[in-house]
Amino acid sequence: MRWEELDQQPCSLARTLSVVGDRWTLLVLRDCFLGVRRFDDFEARLGVTRHVLADRLKRLVEAGVLAKVPYQERPRREEYRFTEKGRDLYQAVMALVSWGDRYMAGAEGAPIRHRHKGCGQVMHGVLVCSECGEPLVPKEIELEEAPEWQGQLLPAHRHARSVEG
Rank of each mutant, 00 (worst) to 15 (best):
S162V: 12
W99Y: 14
K139E: 14
E144A: 12
A107Y: 06
W24S: 11
S162W: 04
M94W: 03
P70Q: 05
L46P: 02
L96G: 12
A92S: 11
L153C: 14
H157E: 13
H159S: 05
K58Y: 07
E144P: 02
A67F: 00
R45N: 10
F82A: 05
G106D: 07
P138N: 01
R56V: 03
R23F: 04
E148F: 04
A63Y: 02
L17E: 09
G133S: 10
C32T: 12
Y71T: 12
L17H: 07
P75F: 10
H157T: 10
A92D: 07
S12I: 12
D41Y: 06
V126G: 00
C11V: 04
G64K: 03
L154N: 08
M123P: 00
S130F: 07
V97Y: 10
K85F: 09
P10M: 08
Q121G: 01
T25P: 00
R87G: 04
L136K: 07
E131R: 15
R76V: 13
L57H: 02
H159I: 04
T16H: 02
D31C: 11
H124E: 13
V65Y: 06
V28G: 06
W24F: 10
W99A: 03
V52I: 14
V122K: 04
K117V: 03
L57P: 04
L17W: 14
T25C: 13
Y80S: 12
R158T: 02
R158Y: 13
R50C: 05
R158W: 07
S12E: 14
C11F: 11
R59H: 13
D55K: 11
G120R: 06
D55P: 00
R77T: 01
E108C: 04
C32I: 10
G64M: 07
V137L: 14
H159D: 03
L6V: 01
G35M: 03
E5I: 00
A92G: 14
A67V: 12
L89G: 01
V48M: 04
Q9C: 09
R15W: 06
H157C: 07
Q91C: 10
L89C: 09
R81H: 14
L96W: 00
A105H: 09
P138M: 08
P70Y: 08
T49V: 02
S12H: 15
E43Q: 15
E164M: 03
V52T: 15
G109A: 07
R158K: 14
R81N: 05
F42V: 01
R115Y: 04
F33H: 11
I141C: 03
V65K: 06
A67K: 10
D40L: 06
R87C: 14
E164A: 13
P70S: 13
R115P: 00
F82N: 01
L26K: 04
A146H: 14
P10G: 02
G47A: 07
L89Q: 02
C11D: 15
T49W: 02
L143N: 04
D22N: 15
L34F: 08
S18A: 15
Q152Y: 06
L136I: 15
